[in-house]
Design a protein around this nucleic acid. Sequence first.
DNA 1: TGTTTTCGATCTTGA
DNA 2: TCAAGATCGAAAACA
Lengths: 218, 218
Amino acid sequence: MTILMDYREAMNRQLVTALRSHPRVELETATLKTGDFLIDNILLIERKTFTDFVLSIKDGRLFRQAVRLANAKKVATMILEGTSGDIKAIGMKREALQGALICLSLKFNLPVLRSMSPKETAWLIVAAAGQCTSTRRTEKHPFPRPAPAKRTNIHQQQLFILQGFPGIGPKRAKLLLKTFGSLKAIFSADPSEFKKVGGIGNVTAEKIWEVIHSQRGG
Amino acid sequence: MTILMDYREAMNRQLVTALRSHPRVELETATLKTGDFLIDNILLIERKTFTDFVLSIKDGRLFRQAVRLANAKKVATMILEGTSGDIKAIGMKREALQGALICLSLKFNLPVLRSMSPKETAWLIVAAAGQCTSTRRTEKHPFPRPAPAKRTNIHQQQLFILQGFPGIGPKRAKLLLKTFGSLKAIFSADPSEFKKVGGIGNVTAEKIWEVIHSQRGG
DNA sequence: TGTTTTCGATCTTGA
DNA sequence: TCAAGATCGAAAACA
């Protein structure tokens, strides 16, 4: 079994030692674009300590990573490492933790395994790899992935585009889309119709209309 | 939110009480073929105590259930209820537990959530249902879009907006604007017209059109 | 199948 | 110390 390990993880002595101690494991260091471990090009694993976990929630990194893991054409999982003492020390509310786990598991189809120590993390990696590879030998895909809950949200993209207009931030973008229903309706509206939307005045309405209708060279 | 609860779970007083205490929850008892809870016909949940869990591994019931849950066209998850003390009391080895969790998560694509008590199980059910049913959660906090450096030039603004569409970067944005002349013309075009622009093919054309015309709730 | 474009990530610079 | 800009590489889409 060949484990490609991201170079960052290579600095974790305990984990590396534990992995090397497995006779069937061949460990290589590489630069992985997504995830921390790639086993036999089948199984993709992201390892996070609780501290990492909390930080990556705060800066929104967690969910971007989750999307990418789910989109990779691999079996993907996250291993969350730490004890209940760690959670308390960080000061994370249990509800917040559970909420994040629900989101990862159900919205992103990314299962989360729990580990108490680097040593157990190593064990989990090997065990998971063993189950995935053996699965592959017997049947190709025993159970098709449940409906891809992933699928980038069109609504989100529409809001994103609206925010490109001058004077339009998240709040007004949401109001506009709610009022008009679709981007097409917004792009076909008159300045006077914009002003009916709360928070948009004369100046902003005119600017938006101008950007939409301005022709090349005019 | 309507929760269909299997009649066997109805005997769990603590759980039922906790569920009823949620104002938005409408609780009904039914005979479910698969799983223990079905929420809004979207989310399917199997609840197990550690004791159940161990027993159902031994008699092979666990994996048959997992197959059924995975095959149901719903978002499915298992809630494992109990404390670490319970595990010890049962005498289950940690490796065996982890092995089973790996199998459920990766082989059967059935994520497992952990709960300490019936009360927390109720909380988990409601929270999970909330995340699965409401796409509105993202509506509340749209991600802000980083603004461009210069906003003075109208032409630049138009290009910036076009780059908000999927698959559109600087090159294609410029080509689009050059071909159609104004944003208005682009937003009124058919997918087939997009494809005439060099560098834009089927996939991108359809995506753009979808973002423009997609209506709220459809 | 080869080439181009986009997109995410990292690195760097400057406040 | 953090944020915005430039750079780089990989994946996806085009032809």
